[in-house]
Design a protein around this nucleic acid. Structure first.
Lengths: 149, 149
DNA sequence: TTTGAACATTTCAAATTTGAAATAATTCCA
DNA sequence: TGGAATTATTTCAAATTTGAAATGTTCAAA
């Protein structure tokens, strides 16, 4: 009972692509999640820390967009990071609606300790593909991602 | 404040790939989720229906592996589909631990009505890439996904 | 001004998801 | 055969996530 051609050639190509995209993503995510848990952070916490560490202090809303999670969720994530003393909320100087989140000294240290290790881990699992293949894949994923807004 | 080269060339390639994979996946998922909601099903429900519709009746555990969700979750998903009369649980003929889930007549109808529409939708959004690009991307994603088990 | 639309964040309830423990059945070998 | 290990599913509590409503702020046009 093969599914090929049942919806036409174009549809089979698109559906196959979607299945493989989902599988590759979930598999990669499962691996990185295991590595992140070792650092004592949750995945969204690690993601927020990463954005703040690499890009500097930013608003909650900007963090949401970088990390692709909802506002209600980011409030909780930042709450928990704040409880752990890794980030702090400071009022935006010009816009009183907005809040800037930034790493504390402790947060900076955690970021600087854990991220290079994680980068190495990601490098290791990505090495299933050659660097040329990675470049090709990146380029196609970028086209797909940006083509859909 | 650019991040390039901070962790070495290989790491930048791998990290960039991971970011783009996550973005492409989330963007694609957001689009398909909107289309699925229109059919009155949740995403996991739709996924289970799709597996059952395309591959025929199967065990809960097999559904979990196809849909990449935990067992505890699939129990709930099948419970809800059963409540809606779309699937039924039947005991496995040989293995009394196991349960076979299969589409009811109603479930089959819902599947046959909604899936072709969804396939068209997926085809439409995938058309951001040419068919050649889709084939190339599929092949690389497959290598990445299977290379990590 | 003032009004209204847009925006940033938080709150809240509901839905989803996970992982661990419990239950039950099967398989493997010594 | 007997018992240990494995497998299939469910249950349960906890964590995560979402989306809608609420609160307060900004901005621009009338």
């Amino acid at each position: 009972m093969k599914t090929t051609k049942r919806y036409g050639k174009k549809a089979e190509s698109a559906l196959g692509l979607w299945v493989k995209l989902a599988r590759a993503y979930h598999t990669f995510a499962r691996h990185t999640a295991a590595d992140i848990r070792a650092s004592g952070l949750t995945q969204p916490q690690f993601g927020a820390l990463e954005s703040l560490g690499h890009l500097g202090p930013m608003q909650i809303g900007e963090l949401c967009r970088k990390q692709l999670v909802s506002g209600g969720n980011m409030t909780v994530v930042v709450d928990n990071l704040e409880k752990d003393g890794l980030v702090e909320r400071v009022p935006h100087a010009e816009d009183r609606r907005a809040i800037i989140v930034r790493l504390t000294a402790k947060g900076k240290k955690v970021f600087e300790d854990s991220f290079p290790k994680h980068a190495q881990y990601v490098t290791k699992i990505a090495s299933v593909l050659t660097e040329e293949e990675q470049a090709e894949l990146s380029q196609l994923l970028k086209k797909l991602g940006t083509g859909l807004q």
